[in-house]
């Protein structure tokens, strides 16, 4: 039982017996976690609600496979992340990012990056975030995910391993390649930036 008085094991047992109230309690309990993950890795043309529902359907369909050796939250996180990767893979077309597609704030960030070696100013951090989001859209789903988790969410290799199920060498290689690709895209944009 957790600090809120929610008994997960008992709830899962009732869900397995097809108790609808238990299913409602379980969804309500896990919904914040699932929506947070889905929002972080959402493909462009998919709604949060649709993907969240997909995650819960997978969760219910595979509930018998949950052994209880890891916390349910870890298991659900992995289902959510893998569902997002699958949805991202389905999104085959990645629009090419041109300098003309950037907003004023994003251009300012690029100019700042090109002009100085100093940290980006706090008032430009939102622009940096938007620019990174656009750059990440150029990468394939796995590369995007590894940068999102490690560089933007600050997760450790171990946490990424738990979330994705990839082993450590795979994560390291993927991160290295993803950074290289991101660097190439950034270099291209910086070339187009007027100095």
């Amino acid at each position: 039982m957790d600090e809120t008085g929610f008994d997960m094991a008992a709830c899962l047992e009732r869900v397995r017996l097809r108790d609808e109230d238990a299913a409602r309690e379980l969804v309500a309990q896990l919904l914040p976690l699932v929506t947070k993950l889905v929002r972080s890795h959402l493909p462009r043309r998919t709604s949060v609600e649709d993907l969240t529902q997909t995650v819960f359907m997978k969760l219910f369909a595979n509930l018998d496979q949950f052994s209880g050796r890891v916390p349910l939250e870890h298991w659900v996180s992995r289902i959510a992340v893998n569902s997002c990767i699958k949805a991202l893979r389905a999104e085959k077309i990645r629009p090419e990012l041109r300098h003309a597609d950037l907003s004023e704030e994003e251009v300012l960030v690029l100019e700042n990056l090109a002009a100085t070696a100093e940290e980006i100013r706090p008032d430009q951090e939102l622009g940096a975030r938007e620019l990174v989001t656009k750059l990440l859209a150029q990468l394939n789903p796995a590369d995007r995910l590894v940068i999102q988790l490690m560089n933007l969410e600050g997760r450790s290799l171990q946490e990424v391993r738990e979330l994705t199920g990839w082993n450590l060498p795979v994560i390291k290689v993927r991160a290295f390649r993803a950074r290289n690709k991101l660097r190439q895209h950034l270099r291209q944009l910086m070339k187009e930036t007027p100095r």
Binding site: T35, K36, R39, V109, L113, A114, A115, T116, A117, E119, I120, P122, Q124, E125, L126, A128, R129, L131, V132, T133, I147, N151, L152, E153, G154, R179, L182, R183, L186, R187, M190, R195
Partner: peptide, 24 residues
């Protein structure tokens, strides 16, 4: 123009620091 790898790190760090409003 500065070295792009450095630029990438600065960009990612700034993006990670960017305030995120309360989740909808």
């Amino acid at each position: 123009m500065k070295n792009p790898p450095e630029a990438l790190d600065r960009l990612l760090q700034a993006a990670a620091r960017a305030p995120q409003g309360p989740p909808p």
